[in-house]
Design a protein around this nucleic acid. Sequence first.
DNA 1: GCACTGACCGTTTTT
DNA 2: CGGTCAGTGC
Length: 664
Amino acid sequence: MPHDLNPAQKDAVQTLSGPLLVLAGAGTGKTRVVTYRISELVRHGVAPERILAVTFTNKAAAEMQQRAAALLKKRRKERPEISTFHSLCVRILRRHIHHLGYPAKFAICDRGDQESVARAALREIKVPGQALRPGDLIQMIGRWKSSSLRPRQASALAETDKEHLAAAAYRRYQNNLKATGAVDFDDLLLLVEELFRKFPAVRREESGRFDQLLIDEYQDTNGSQYRIVKTLAAGHRNLCVVGDDDQSIYGWRGAEVEHILRFRRDWPEAKIVRLEENYRSTAAILTMANQLIAFNKNRHEKVLRAARPGGQVPRILQFKDESEEAARIVGDIRQQLTAPGAQPLDFAILFRTNEQPRAFELELRAAKLPYVLIGGMSFYDRKEVRDVLAYLKLVVNPYDEVSLLRIINTPPRGIGQSTVARMMDQATSGSKSLWDVLSAATESGNMSPAATAGIGKFCGMIQQFHKHCERGSLADLANRLIHEVGYRDELVRLYPDPNERQTRLDSVEEVVNALASYENGKRRPTLKSFLDDAALGRDDLDEKESQLDRNAIALMTLHSAKGLEFPNVYLVGVEENILPHHRSVAADGSAIEEERRLCYVGVTRAQDRLTLSLSLTRRKWGKSRPSQPSRFLFELTGQADQPHAAPRPARKPKSVRTRVGRRR
DNA sequence: GCACTGACCGTTTTT
DNA sequence: CGGTCAGTGC
């Protein structure tokens, strides 16, 4: 038991049985408490493998695994089970999903696949042009799924035209997924719930696997996750949840702050421990954070106390447009970097939306400063990466229709749209799979010679690779596959610009590299589990892990910044309609509260120096438009009306401490 | 079947 | 401004 814990932390670490709610404010040593509690459990005789800790991101899971391993080093060979909700559900489903009529080897459909399936579903019901976009549909399906609504129930509840269309598309979407033996992210949770509900034996087996349950970031649990947790903990009741209602920023994804707010009702004997001593930020920064969050009504009252007194008062900088904002902030960073000991990785630029970093990237490149853009257009969103992964998925499972359709004619091999449409018709009318129709197509002889030849060669090749996909080196297999389809040649042909060509060729290379490094790191590597990990966004696959270690300035959204800390934080674009986002401004008050929490998360990432910035105009779709300072600026400087009064739209901040960017 | 062109459209956040 | 989509000509 370490001596350097404060009384509240000790209390949380040493409460080893029964329900426990740890209300951990930002920067109060939550991670340490959690990991120490795990090692304390083991010290008191709980077998490590009987402890389950659930996190929300892969990054958090990886970090916790590492810390727990270090603490338990010599004690036992077994490790506590530490994983994300989604990985946990995948494991449960692999064991039992056959009860629900899915293959045990179901494929996990990532964001890109989801979009293809959604697009296909919309085409099937012939939705006119712009009436409903795939992205909207995915959103709506996600919302329905997170409240456990099936297509039938969704269409019963639908009111507007759009909802009716979406409900119809939802049915197609779900049918298509199931026909392919695939599940999407929401299904992972939903199907586990369904298993627990319908099969008591499964429920008993899975909840009997652990004696201790620990949930991190509890404020972000959605309905499904909440019910799964309840089921898993029902027997032993040793449930420790850790979270901060002030940092709940995933409401749009179905997370409900209510779960953490009413924990006591579900678990009446629950003990509550509050961690309010903040070790991360200076008092100057915390004062602002506290003043800001006090404007939220729906929260557990708590006030962070600064363990670090004093500190620089955060700056609020105002610029004339977004390029000046970027230029001056990058200039400021460059200047700060001349201080002895200062390093790029001490700096982070945080923003609300993904279009904001563009200007900053430009400036950082010009200034030759190293930077990493976390999230955004991720590795797995790149076209070439998705193409290569689709080939690999098809090799593992030729019945993966989404992947098949993606690459059936990429590079072009004579199988055009009309051929594909005809075969799709055959498949649906004969209720066969597209792959079966395709394999039989060479014999049926009703295709053009070019198409027949293309199909024959394509099917033969996929079959060959499928047969051998569990033998030999995976990276090798990928390389041969890429070579055989002539994918690199196609890139060379398509992209005459040498820079662009190289970037795209590099993307292909990176997939192969990721596969190689995966292969080296695993005892029994299979292509299938590589693809699963890729779909679940396990960041140990691509170079992101080294990205974090790389000595570079971090650029990321406020959402991806949660859980991180930096000596110097620049929170940029603090303007009405950006933070808070205009869609939240248009909605009701609770949406604004979530935006405020988002701002709070940003402010509390800073250890030593915080800079908030805004620009007075902003280009949108080529046109420059005026922009107003965010209402949050007035709140956090103590210049807004009293907390709990209706917020009024911010005007030019006469009294806000600003340092207007000097003009030339 | 394929590639090129111009019109149109619109943008939160992510496991 | 940049990406997507439908329509056109080969």
